[in-house]
């Protein structure tokens, strides 16, 4: 796979004491959908703006197709980068209708070419009837799609999106996210999407980069990020879970309160560490009435198809557990549980 964008050792500070990005190294694969995921204020939008050329960097570089577009000395003008960008508030020009908004970036095109391009793009997102409307006459989802095709109109080779779904109502969000994914895949355009919503990232991305406090924490597929978090931040930020202490039984043999660990699934040599703990996801715990291991229900959350129970095991360890929704137990009840875990995620405490 080709590397479309190579970001090396990138740091960015707005003022002396206000450093936003720390030594970012990130490769963006050609024709893939990349997500930068992190809590708000982690610097993800700044990173995106640096890629777009809106921010000057303090050190490091950004290469696009092998050509340096940003380093601490030079910053290729935004307009020359051939990148399209979709903004959080869509930034549609309020004084222009949909058609003129889309045409804005089309230069050196004849009127006929423009017309064709606009029609083609509107068809792509199934909004041909909105051609002559003004932004304020469109719903949030429609504005978002117009913003996307406006960015696509000049045929950029990379599309950047800053929290593109954050202003979309929950009930249409999932559908829109998958529509956008289909569209980006159909055009096989390299995309970088910034978001704070992990479900969104998991639904849309081929590769996810997790960021916190201006530092990249982990880069990987959504599956790997969830099941093999690289550090405690990622483990805590992505999905639900609790930590259980890992105890050394004897050399090379370890156990957690719920039972012994299978040595084949342990990747590192745990002998040299002390104070270890293991991530237990709610899907790692199975509710089984016949199990001799009992835990007391502390809290419960009804989620339709299932219950999420917060349990206390051995009067000491809190764990989470999904149970099918017909297993309706009361708070305070004691239920049988079993450990069923494939990926061991163990960190030093």
């Amino acid at each position: 796979m080709n590397k479309k964008i190579i970001i090396s050792n990138l740091s960015l500070a707005f003022e002396e004491k206000n450093q936003i990005l720390f030594n970012i190294n990130l490769n963006i694969q050609d024709s893939e959908i990349n997500c930068i995921l992190g809590p708000s204020g982690c610097g993800k939008t700044t990173l995106l703006r640096a890629i777009a050329g809106f921010e000057d960097v303090s050190s490091g570089s950004i290469l696009k197709d092998g050509v340096c577009i940003t380093n601490s000395v030079e910053n290729m003008p935004v307009a020359n980068r051939n990148m399209g960008m979709v903004f959080q508030d869509y930034a549609l020009f309020p004084n222009m209708n949909v058609k003129t908004n889309i045409e804005f970036g089309l230069k050196n095109h004849s009127d006929l070419e423009k017309e064709n391009r606009v029609n083609y793009l509107l068809d792509l997102v199934n909004l041909p009837e909105h051609k002559n409307k003004f932004p304020h006459e469109l719903s949030g989802g429609e504005q978002q799609r117009i913003a996307l095709i406006r960015a696509l109109a000049p045929s950029p080779d990379i599309i950047l999106m800053d929290e593109p779904f954050s202003n979309i109502d929950q009930d249409i969000k999932e559908e829109l996210v998958s529509d956008v994914r289909d569209l980006l895949k159909e055009l096989s355009i390299t995309s970088i999407i910034v978001t704070h919503d992990q479900n969104e990232a998991f639904n849309i991305a081929d590769q996810v980069a997790i960021m916190n406090k201006g530092v990249i924490q982990q880069i990987g597929t959504p599956y790997d990020i969830y099941h093999k978090p690289a550090n405690k931040f990622v483990a805590g930020f992505i999905g639900l879970g609790t930590f259980l202490p890992v105890r050394k039984v004897n050399n090379n043999n370890f156990e957690i309160p719920l039972g012994p660990l299978n040595n084949e699934r342990i990747n590192n040599d745990l002998n040299k560490f002390e104070n270890l703990e293991m991530l237990i996801r709610p899907d790692d715990i199975i509710h089984n009435e016949s199990s001799p291991k009992k835990a007391v229900i502390l809290e419960k959350q009804f989620r339709g198809a299932e219950f999420l129970y917060k349990l206390l095991y051995n009067n000491e360890y809190s764990i989470l557990c999904y149970a099918p929704s017909h297993h309706n137990h009361a708070i305070g009840d004691s239920i049988g549980i079993e450990l069923d875990i494939k990926h061991y995620v163990i960190f030093e405490r």
Binding site: R49, A79, F93, G105
Partner: peptide
């Protein structure tokens, strides 16, 4: 920013 990213000066 949108205008600039679409190539406007």
């Amino acid at each position: 920013d949108a205008a600039k990213s679409l190539g406007a000066n």
